[in-house]
Design a protein around this nucleic acid. Structure first.
Length: 479
RNA sequence: CGGGGCGUAGCGCAGCCUGGUAGCGCGCCUGCCUUGGGCGCAGGAGGCCCCCGGUUCAAAUCCGGGCGCCCCGACCA
């Protein structure tokens, strides 16, 4: 690392983000434009995210599967809106084994089509339903403007796909998975999100209805952190996914799909991070506690390291993800800064003075300097640490929620909305027309993020046209 | 896809205008010293100066062409 300090978020949020991702060794640029290499620390975070989600998917009856990456080009063409939405960003394979292919293959941008194709073979009867599947994979979308984690040509995600006998059941599934994303974001990532419905302009290509969870980043911009789509019978019709019901009638299935990607790592960085670097939510942190030993003489070194290793073992036994930093040649101060930059939520400082009184200094990442430090007896440390991790988890969530609240404004006209989205969210009544939505975007550079499921306050007149509006929507500049 | 910036040691950069021995900081290696908030000293290793062509006795430097990456704007998980 050439530069030790990051730019501050106020100076240049975008540059702060870029440098942090590289310096914290979450990811690096790949040799191909717009592609990233996820490094061990970043992947460990992703693994914790996948574990937290996968647990929830399994608990609601979903099974994991693996579909191939290559899809016949013609499949994409079968659903009208789908092809319109995805054609511009497809990567297409035209040569295989040195021969021009009879039919080009696309690298999946998402798997609705190939899954629909297979379902048409597998689903015959209402007894075969529902089908509840999920796959962890990567997909490719040829984006023009890329940014590590937030938008790369290839990204990692999970895509859930389900087929149901009735509209109601499919709609329930769509909402259930949105709830799961919300619960994950709030409980595990400490990121408050607004679950809501997308406008027609913003919805998934091929969906009847798209829901999303929207989060506010540290610069006040919005990030769509997860989506759940009610696909109606669009793909079932395009791929003839049909079943015979109890009355002997042939019916099209109702399907859903839902996804959450490595983009979520970008959300964690931009929601919790501060000018010192990352702050990992304890529940997802690859390293929850780092022990930094401090010593001068050989004698001190051996007694401190003895105590540190013993402590390390006890914390491991308590189920805490702990790392003992035994690196030589870096000073304790250097290590403090290093682990702060990498966002470890709790640091244990252990030096001769501490060992003498059988204690250790605990420092919490979310409170800088002395303010966040306390001394605690070594014997209690597994318990004390666990408690502190829970406190940090809660504090991060509350801080993010307060930040969002204080940067969200009720707006009554376009001027107010324009000002509100300079550094936050705007709540505004919206009549629901695409024209008004387009007008707002044109004049303010903000997009309609979602119509929150939980409506706060009374809807009045549409902010753009003045006609009565049924609902209030969130507008913001978005990543 | 438009606008801007940048390609020189692992990283960050200077040198280029005005052609002539390739440099600085950090990192890395060795040794000593240090470790409670980004220690210090000494020695050392490390280069297709993005690529191709041109001008010239001589090109990192001037000229032409290409490629790549980043940033900013319109589309997107």
């Amino acid at each position: 690392m050439a530069e030790e300090k990051l730019p501050t978020r106020a100076e240049d949020f975008s540059e702060w983000y870029n440098q942090l991702v590289l310096k914290a060794q979450l990811a690096d640029y790949a040799p191909v434009r717009g592609c990233m290499v996820v490094r061990p620390y970043g992947w460990a975070l992703w693994e914790n995210i996948t574990a937290a989600l996968d647990r929830r998917f399994k608990a609601t009856g979903h099974q994991n599967v693996a579909f191939p990456m290559l899809i016949p080009r013609s499949f994409i063409d079968k659903e009208k809106h789908h092809v319109e939405g995805f054609s511009p960003e497809l990567a297409v394979v035209t040569i295989g084994g040195g021969e021009e292919l009879a039919e080009p293959l696309v690298i999946r941008p998402t798997s609705e089509t190939i899954i629909g194709h297979m379902w048409s073979k597998w689903i015959q009867s209402y007894r075969d339903l529902p089908v509840l599947m999920n796959q962890w994979n990567s997909v490719v979308r040829w984006e023009l403007r890329t940014k590590l984690f937030l938008r790369t040509l290839e990204f990692y995600w999970q895509e859930g796909h389900t087929a149901h006998a009735t509209r109601e059941e499919a709609e329930f599934e769509t909402r259930q998975m949105l709830d799961i994303y919300t619960d994950f974001a709030v409980s595990d990532a400490a990121i408050p999100v607004i679950p809501g419905k997308k406008s027609d302009a913003e919805k998934f290509a091929g969906a009847d209805t798209t829901f999303s969870i929207e989060a506010m980043m540290g610069d006040g911009k919005a990030l769509q952190a997860g989506t759940s789509h009610f696909l109606g019978q669009n793909f079932a019709q395009a791929f003839e996914v049909r079943y015979l019901d109890q009355n002997g009638q042939l019916q099209h299935c109702w399907t859903t799909s839902w996804g959450l990607s490595t983009r979520f790592i970008g959300a964690i960085i931009m929601v919790h991070g501060d000018d010192q670097g990352l702050i990992m939510p304890p529940k997802l942190a690859p390293i929850q506690v780092v022990i930094v030993p401090i010593y001068k003489t050989d004698e001190e070194k051996s007694s401190v390291l003895d105590a540190a290793r013993k402590l390390n073992a006890e914390l491991v036994k308590a189920g805490i993800r702990v790392k003992l930093d035994e690196r030589e040649g870096q000073s304790a101060g250097w290590k403090f800064n290093d682990w702060e930059m990498r966002g470890v939520p709790v640091r244990v400082e252990l030096g001769p003075k501490d060992v003498a009184k059988q204690a250790a200094v605990l420092a919490r990442r979310d409170k800088p300097g002395r303010e966040g430090k306390v001394s605690a007896p070594l014997a209690d440390l597994p318990v004390t640490t666990e408690k502190l991790l829970a406190e940090v988890q809660q504090a991060l969530h509350d801080k993010a929620l307060n930040f969002r609240k204080s940067n969200t404004h009720d707006t009554k006209n376009i001027e107010e909305l324009k000002r509100a989205v300079e550094n936050g969210f705007a709540l505004a009544s919206w009549c629901g027309s695409a024209d008004c939505e387009a007008k707002i975007k044109e004049e303010t550079r903000a997009t309609m993020r979602c119509i929150p499921l939980e409506q706060e306050g009374q809807a009045g007149e549409c902010i753009a046209c003045g006609k009565p509006a049924p609902e209030r929507a969130v507008f913001a500049r978005a990543y």
